[in-house]
Computed example of a mutant assay.
Amino acid sequence: MTDLAETDPWSLSLVARVEKDAAGNPAPTHTDTLVAAARAVVLLLSDPRVTSPDGELRAAVQAWRDRRIRKICRRARGVKWERTAALPHAEAASGEAVVRVFAPHPREQVPELLRPLQVGGLDLADPEDLAVPGPDGLLTIRLTPGVAMTTGKAAAQVGHAAQLAYEQLPQARRWQETGFGVRVLTGAPVLPPSGRVDVRDGGFTEVPPGTTTASAGFEGTV
């Protein structure tokens, strides 16, 4: 990371689909949205458009990685959601949740199709009987207990966690081969520091600077 982190910030945009008519389009749950966000981030980073030397998104991703890995979550519905498909992106779904992740851009140069989408205020719920799958084959992302975050903020944090796991943990290749499965729960880390990645927030929104918002690691067999 260079001084560009402060003088020329870039962001990765996540967009969650949240339709207004919950009767006709069931509202996504909080956890499903987080799972979809985490998977969409690593699907973009592992895409040939990023990994190939001549990939169309490679330069933008590299410019963003050289700075703070800021992520901003927006929400969209209806025709505004459909229009975002025209931009290069990766998409992931979990349950009723669908999240798209778009190529990074300078923070003040948001693509026209994303600019009108609402930032902030995305706060979804989970059912009381939410079932968490077992860890085998999945990256486990643990949100820090006692750190209150909206769904939009948490989506950015699990995106950070998935990215760091993809870039730093030795099991990442096998994880990719098995489809980037993710589970998200709230709880203190159970893995030692050598076996996990931790996310410490920059403090720009919702939580104080340096707050550990999430950890991630492979708690089962991958």
Rank of each mutant, 00 (worst) to 15 (best):
E6R: 05
T7L: 04
T7V: 07
W10V: 07
S11K: 01
L14T: 03
A16E: 07
V18G: 00
E19R: 06
K20H: 14
K20G: 12
K20Q: 14
A22G: 07
P26S: 07
P26Y: 01
P28H: 06
T29P: 09
T31Q: 12
D32P: 01
T33W: 07
A36W: 07
A37R: 02
A37Y: 08
A38T: 09
L43G: 02
L45Q: 11
S46M: 00
D47R: 01
T51I: 13
T51Y: 11
S52M: 10
P53G: 11
G55V: 08
E56T: 14
R58Y: 05
A60Y: 01
W64D: 04
W64Y: 01
D66F: 10
K71L: 13
I72W: 02
R74I: 08
K80T: 02
W81A: 00
W81Q: 03
E82S: 14
E82W: 07
A85N: 04
A85W: 06
P88R: 09
H89Q: 14
A90D: 10
A90R: 10
A93R: 00
S94L: 09
E96P: 09
E96C: 08
A97I: 04
R100N: 09
R100C: 07
V101P: 00
P104N: 04
P104R: 06
R107P: 00
R107M: 12
R107V: 12
R107C: 02
R107L: 14
R107G: 01
E108L: 15
V110D: 00
P111E: 11
P111F: 07
L114F: 00
L114Y: 01
L114D: 00
R115C: 08
R115V: 05
V119F: 13
L122Y: 04
L122G: 03
L122S: 03
D123A: 13
L124E: 11
A125K: 15
L130K: 01
A131Y: 01
A131E: 14
P133C: 13
D136E: 14
L138D: 09
R142G: 05
R142S: 06
P145T: 12
P145C: 12
G146A: 04
G146Q: 08
V147G: 03
T150M: 13
T151K: 07
K153S: 12
K153G: 08
G159Q: 11
A161V: 13
A161T: 14
Q163G: 05
Y166E: 14
Y166S: 15
E167Q: 14
P170L: 06
A172F: 08
R174P: 10
Q176M: 13
G179S: 06
G181Q: 15
G181K: 15
G181C: 03
G181P: 00
R183N: 03
G187S: 11
G187V: 11
A188G: 04
A188E: 15
P193H: 12
S194H: 12
S194P: 02
S194C: 06
G195I: 05
G195F: 04
D198L: 04
D198E: 15
V199Q: 03
R200K: 12
D201S: 06
G202N: 02
G203K: 08
V207P: 02
P209D: 11
T211P: 02
T211R: 04
T211F: 05
A214D: 09
F218V: 00
T221V: 14
